[in-house]
Design a protein around this nucleic acid. Structure first.
Length: 272
DNA sequence: CCTTGAACCTGCGGGC
DNA sequence: TGCCCGCAGGTTCAAG
């Protein structure tokens, strides 16, 4: 899955493609994702117009006519594509939403870690999937003061803290690694210690996310823009996926370690 | 409370 | 060519 920059890029693309479109047909081709599609999803969507498409953390929020919101998460391998009505579907195209214009929005997710949920607009902020999320990284709430307070007294590594959606929303494995490189901080640093560098961490998180947004969401193997084109070009990562390669800054060999079951990449010389 | 690890899935690339 | 292994963008839940 995409992290925040990729989801935001998809959101912008979808906004152009389907905002204001009216839904005519909904096909659930397979509903047993890890979290199954909600009962009555097709009926809830049919006939409604898509009013706005927002993002919270890595969730896309489709506001529909009548005060209903569809929450969609892409999981690890999810993709959204807008295709013509006669374009062929593939094996893992689980949800297909047809519009009066003839466009179809397709949710494809081989690993089925993605999910769709429904909420009343009025209850959205209390929806269980959203209620416990931390602040958006570009919001004023995500301040150095907030981060210092949140990290203080915690024993986990700073890398895991940055990936904790309750600490800050939208930062996943790639951008946690990249932000720590940007901040010059060893990913194994205890969160409590890292809280002393909260100013630098906030700046670093925002900088790497901004850079990825500017390049149109980055560059994962199966990330596509919503129009179905292969929408990425090689976003220049400093450490992620570069084990054994020279650090772009100091030429030391990039290391890979495992933290909480996830790969962490870092420069042993630049990050202390 | 906090932290860790397993679980949920499929597909792909590398090594043999 | 084919098989087996490890690995992949995330989140949740149980257990320590």
């Amino acid at each position: 899955m995409p992290e925040l920059p990729e989801v935001e890029t998809i959101r912008r693309s979808l906004e152009k493609a389907v905002q204001g479109e009216k839904i005519t047909a909904v096909a659930l081709r397979r509903r047993d994702l890890r979290i199954p599609f909600p009962e009555g999803l097709a009926a809830a969507l049919a006939g409604k117009r898509v009013m706005t498409i927002r993002r919270r953390a890595k969730y896309l929020l489709f506001s529909l006519e009548g005060g209903l919101v569809m929450l969609l998460h892409l999981g690890m391998s999810g993709r959204l594509m807008v295709i013509p009505h006669d374009a062929p579907l593939e094996k893992h195209d689980h949800l297909v939403i047809g519009f009066t214009s003839g466009k179809r929005l397709v949710f494809r997710d081989p690993r089925r870690f993605g999910l769709v949920a429904l909420s009343r607009e009025s209850e959205l902020e209390h929806h269980p999937l959203l209620a416990e999320l931390g602040p958006e990284p570009f919001s004023r709430v995500f301040s150095a003061r907030y981060l210092a307070k949140t990290l203080a007294g915690r024993g986990i590594a700073v890398k895991q803290a940055l990936m904790d959606a309750g600490v800050v929303a939208g930062v996943g494995n790639i951008y946690a690694c990249e932000a720590l490189f940007e901040a010059g901080m060893d990913p194994r640093t205890p969160a409590a210690k890292a809280s002393e560098e909260a100013v630098a961490l906030v700046k670093a998180v925002r900088k790497v996310l901004n850079a990825a947004l500017a390049s149109g969401g980055s560059s994962l193997r199966d990330f596509f823009h919503a129009n179905g084109d292969q929408g990425y070009f090689q976003h220049c990562f400093h450490v992620y996926g570069r084990e054994g390669k020279p650090c772009r800054h100091c030429t030391a060999s990039i290391r890979r370690i495992r933290q909480a079951g996830r790969s962490t990449f870092f420069c042993p010389r630049c990050q202390r």
